[in-house]
Design a protein around this nucleic acid. Structure first.
Length: 718
DNA sequence: TGGTGACCAATTTTT
DNA sequence: TTGGTCACCA
């Protein structure tokens, strides 16, 4: 068995998989088969009978990688995934806290606040303390609180020397109290609370320490201090931690990731086994050479150099555009050439340092009629209508969830205005009770009837759902709350109604894979906000930030905006540490490409409404010239057409490509063009979103402005 | 109670 | 340039 598992691995990978049950650090370079090693290790441990499934804990950062790991393991071995402790840090902490909620000092039905909900909870605290928004911006306070939690500090542990920090500390204290009163936990609370559970309850700690003989950690370079401390508590005398990570891909310091954990791990745990996975299975040689060259400029490294058995491949193409507009044009036409040559659009990525850069590229793509998909944006459980629905569900599960109550008390509107809410908040404060209890006591004056109605709606919901399946719980809620009716009445509510129906479906599928339980469903909704965007598997160009591209790979990658101030970003070019982080980001970007890499920059760029003239990024200079091929040497072309898009088949000499079509999109729907709709008549295209498969906004002469789906609306260019 | 205009700030983001 | 927030008004 063990032979079969390691047969496909290289010697370093195999060595890692078959390490003895001792602490180990695996330095896994980009594209070195990290996930295979992690899952093979698990499969090896289980199949050789060294541990039972219950003795294993594997932790990741994202649900995506947790799912990936789980599906790979269950593909190798017949296991019930539900019995396995494989999940995200937050997911596993939540699981532990649910099991021991009493010992953790949490109500059974505690709700999980996401970032946005935490922010509104903090705003309430600041209002209560009458702290000025300008001096104490809610976002700053949020960072302050999370920062302390991620370093294991409760409000009581925080030092305050001056008035300002005393106020912040006070806000933290009050926020803690509020969360406890309402029975809610934010994301960092899940970790901190679980950490405290393990440290204050020796018998629980001992139980898990004994149980988890093997703890495997993915993306170890991304762990923060608290996550590291949690791992340290969880690992007992007989546990072995198998940490996999890459210090060169540490790009999340800004949200608390501490690469230093890799060094601390080695000394704290007296790690004997450090294995480097340096053979890369993804990229051609030139791309790896460029990546190695760039990252070698960093001083703080554990040291690692990627190599490949693959050929050198093509040179890295550099294109210097005269403007951001022209840069976008170049990328689009070049990408079209690649697609024409047979490359799948979904195998082509356009990367940028900051989201703002996507606009102009999207515009160019749209004008050319090329399908594309932008990563980022709202996720399913973050949509307004879904948030409202979830708030009702949460209120049903836990009436003292004031956050949830405030969100829906007057949505759909039922005549409970700001003053009534204000009065209720004041009442709750005086009585020291929840808003729900205050609401139940009724109100004086005109607001009384409306408030009574709200209370009876919630009561009715709670009475009706007893014994119902999750889907029906959601249905009842949608009916009684009036949410569904509200959006059905709304002329632009079609999509929202569809999303609410999708929520019913989500509840249905949830039952099949988990227990039929409102609380579990709500946790699931908070911890897994869902897909970033629909149409993930559609054939389209992939647009995303370099951060979002981590972990992904593409046949061809366009890395745009290689200018000082953009990449490295100007906010990160002052001190060495942040430049090194930017350089790691560059390293991540380069190593996304399998076969072809384009580096593009623009001499002028529209930034904050002003034209800026940039200088080439220092990272460009850090790549050996021999690896680069300038597509427009001698630059400053008025039009990029001087550089003919080159064929994807590297051996072939660039074949002549048709002269670039200027603003003649294949579907003909560029902004400003006149169209005719069978029902609405004549109009002008004024805006668009989502590419050729997305929507266009048309201002119709007779019927005003409307958003229409390109694919369905029978628009004719006139 | 929702809509409008002034004003300001402006990486990267998972859970 | 864009987007978000906020005060003010019908």
């Amino acid at each position: 068995m063990s032979h079969a598992l390691t047969a496909k691995l290289n010697p370093q990978q195999a060595a890692a998989v078959e390490l003895p049950a001792e602490h180990a650090l695996i330095l896994a370079g980009a594209g070195s088969g990290k996930t295979s090693v992690l899952t093979s290790r698990i499969a090896w441990l289980l199949s050789t009978g060294q541990i039972s499934p219950s003795g294993l804990l594997a932790v990741t950062f994202t649900n995506k990688s947790a799912k990936e790991m789980l599906s790979r393991i269950t593909a190798m071995l017949p296991l019930n995934p539900r019995g396995l402790w494989v999940g995200t840090f937050h997911g596993l902490c939540n699981r532990m806290l649910r099991l021991h909620h009493r010992d953790a000092g949490l109500p059974e039905a505690f709700a999980i606040l996401d970032q946005a909900e935490q922010l509104s909870a903090i705003k309430r605290v600041l209002k209560l303390l009458t702290l000025d928004d300008d001096q104490y911006p809610p976002r700053t306070v949020q960072q302050y609180i999370n920062g302390h939690k991620e370093n294991g500090r409760r409000a009581a542990d925080v030092e305050a020397w001056d008035d300002y920090s005393r106020q912040l500390k006070l806000a933290y204290e009050e926020y803690e109290k509020q969360c406890n009163r309402e029975g809610v936990a934010d994301f960092s609370e899940l970790l901190l609370r679980c950490y405290e559970l393990l440290s204050y309850k020796p018998e629980i700690r001992a139980h898990y320490q004994q149980r988890f003989a093997h703890i495997l950690v993915d993306e170890f370079q991304d762990t923060n201090r608290l996550q590291y401390a949690w791992l340290k508590l969880l690992a007992g005398q007989n546990s072995a931690i198998f940490a996999v990570g890459d210090d060169d891909q540490s790009i999340y310091a800004f949200r608390g990731a501490n690469v230093g954990n890799m060094i601390d791990f080695q000394s704290d745990f007296l790690v004997k086994h450090v294995i480097r996975l340096e053979q890369n299975y993804r990229s051609h040689g030139n791309i790896l050479d460029a990546a190695n060259a760039v990252i070698s400029h960093n001083t703080q490294r554990l040291g690692k150099e990627l190599w490949t058995q693959a050929s050198a491949g093509e040179l890295i193409r550099v294109y210097e555009a005269s403007s951001d507009f022209e840069e976008a044009q170049f990328i689009v036409e070049e990408a079209q050439a690649l697609i024409r040559d047979g490359m799948a659009a979904s195998e082509i990525a356009i990367l940028y340092r900051s989201n703002a850069q996507s606009r102009i590229i999207e515009h160019a793509l749209f004008s050319a009629g090329v399908a594309y998909r932008v990563y980022g944006g709202l996720r399913f459980f973050e949509r307004q209508e879904i948030k409202h629905a979830l708030a009702y569900l949460r209120l049903m599960a836990n009436p003292s969830d004031d956050n949830a109550l405030l969100r829906v008390i007057n949505f759909p509107t039922r005549g409970i205005g700001a003053r009534s809410v204000e009065a209720m908040v004041e009442k709750a404060r005086l009585e020291g009770c929840s808003l729900w209890q205050a609401a139940c006591m009724g109100a004086a004056g005109r607001g009384a009837a409306a408030l009574g109605k709200f209370v009876s709606i919630i009561d009715a919901m709670r009475n009706q759902i007893a014994g119902l399946a999750m889907t029906d719980v959601v249905r009842v809620m949608l009916e009684l709350s009036g949410l569904l009716a509200h959006y059905q009445k709304d002329k632009d509510g079609e999509e929202r109604v569809a999303n609410l129906e999708e929520l019913v479906n989500a509840a249905a599928t949830f039952i099949s894979e988990d227990e039929n339980n409102l609380i579990a469903f709500l946790s699931h909704a908070s911890l897994e906000a869902g897909d970033h965007q629909a149409g993930e598997h559609e054939e389209a160009l992939q647009l995303m930030t370099v951060h979002a591209a981590k972990g992904l790979e593409f046949n061809a990658v366009f890395l745009s905006g290689l200018e000082e101030g953009l990449f490295p970003h100007e906010n990160s070019s002052k001190d060495q540490a942040s430049v090194e982080e930017e350089r790691r980001l560059m390293y991540v970007a380069i190593t996304r490409a399998r076969q072809r890499l384009y580096l593009t920059l623009a001499q002028s760029r529209m930034l904050h409404g002003q034209t800026r003239y940039g200088v080439a990024s220092r990272f460009l200079d850090e790549i050996p010239q021999v690896l680069l091929k300038y597509l427009n040497r001698g630059y400053a072309p008025s039009s990029y057409s001087s550089a003919a898009p080159s064929s994807f088949n590297a051996a072939a000499t660039a074949k002549p490509v048709a002269a670039p079509k200027k603003s003649t999109p294949e579907h003909g729907l560029a902004i400003g063009c006149k169209v005719e709709h069978p029902k609405f008549g004549l109009g002008v295209v004024t805006d668009h979103e989502g590419g050729a498969t997305g929507n266009v906004q048309v201002n119709f002469a007779q019927h005003g402005s409307k958003w229409l789906a390109v694919a369905y609306a029978k628009l004719k260019v006139v």
